[in-house]
């Protein structure tokens, strides 16, 4: 194995004319024949911060998500449990990550079976849940277990938080933390309800890249699964969740 590694690195150094450490074959601009300046600073004149006012940023996120055929609503935090319950009225079962705020599921109708994707109840979540007794009951009574793939396949829906969202591209980023869940729980169930606090919404991609740790297992989601493979026309709904509901939690 070391043989291949060394040989490839040697080949690349040869290609660059770097036998003695400095690059002698710097490359040529193909239209002019002038040598490439490999020491030149990488220009970064592109926008790194958005310019829209906050309401316009949120409006743009909504617009983009709707364009991707996601279902979107904006509600104050107090209304989240009600909206979640509405959206999951038809669900048999819902899986949630252990770090999700407990009251999110507090109004889910009784027949909906809730399970938490964790080996055991986590202190933080339960503590938060104690704020409201109703929510605490629902959360505490939920079964805690690491779900198998088959269990997730038999689960109707998943509810998670999110880390940061990009208005301009309609992109929601999950980072595998305890409120976003393991990657597979947002993948296998066919319906994903995702909570996006207004404060986590940025306007453009560079602002989001600066706020997310890419060494975590990051998943970026822009609408429900889709394909352009048939005549290059976009069709929603292939292997990933076919329904994406986004609940934007307003600051007010």
């Amino acid at each position: 194995m070391t043989g291949a590694r060394e040989e490839i690195l040697t080949r690349l150094r040869t290609a660059l004319g770097r036998e003695d450490g400095t690059t002698t074959r710097t490359g040529v601009v193909p239209s002019t024949g002038k040598p490439v300046d490999i020491d030149a600073e990488v220009p970064r004149a592109y926008l790194r911060e958005g310019s829209l006012a906050r309401p316009a940023v949120i409006e743009q996120l909504v617009d983009r998500l709707v364009d991707y055929k996601a279902w979107v609503t904006q509600v104050p935090a107090a209304d989240v449990p009600r909206v979640v319950a509405q959206r999951l009225e038809q669900a048999d079962s819902v899986v949630i990550p252990p770090g999700l705020e407990a009251d999110v599921v507090s109004q889910l109708p009784e027949p909906v079976r809730i399970t938490v994707d964790a080996a055991e109840a986590q202190d933080g979540a339960v503590a938060k849940a104690e704020v409201e007794s109703e929510a605490a009951d629902r959360f505490a009574s939920a079964a805690h277990r690491i779900h198998t793939i088959d269990e997730l396949d038999a689960t109707s829906a998943v509810i998670t938080a999110s880390r940061v969202s990009v208005a301009q591209t309609g992109t929601i980023m999950l980072d595998g933390d305890t409120d976003c869940g393991r990657r597979m729980i947002t993948l296998v169930p066919d319906h994903h309800v995702c909570l996006v606090p207004e404060s986590t919404v940025v306007e453009i991609v560079p602002e989001a890249v600066a706020r997310i740790d890419l060494t975590r297992p990051v998943t970026m989601i822009s609408g429900p699964s889709a394909t352009s493979d048939i005549e290059l026309q976009r069709v929603e709904g292939v292997h990933g969740p076919r329904q994406l509901d986004v609940i934007i939690i307003t600051d007010r």
């Binding site: 983009r64 393991r182 990657r183 890419l214 297992p217 998943t219 990933g240």
Partner: peptide, 21 residues
Amino acid sequence: STAERMNPYTSFWTGATAGDG
């Protein structure tokens, strides 16, 4: 590529993450 503002899914992984994937 697909002329979209963003493609539906992008995944990143760094080595193995315990308990996930």
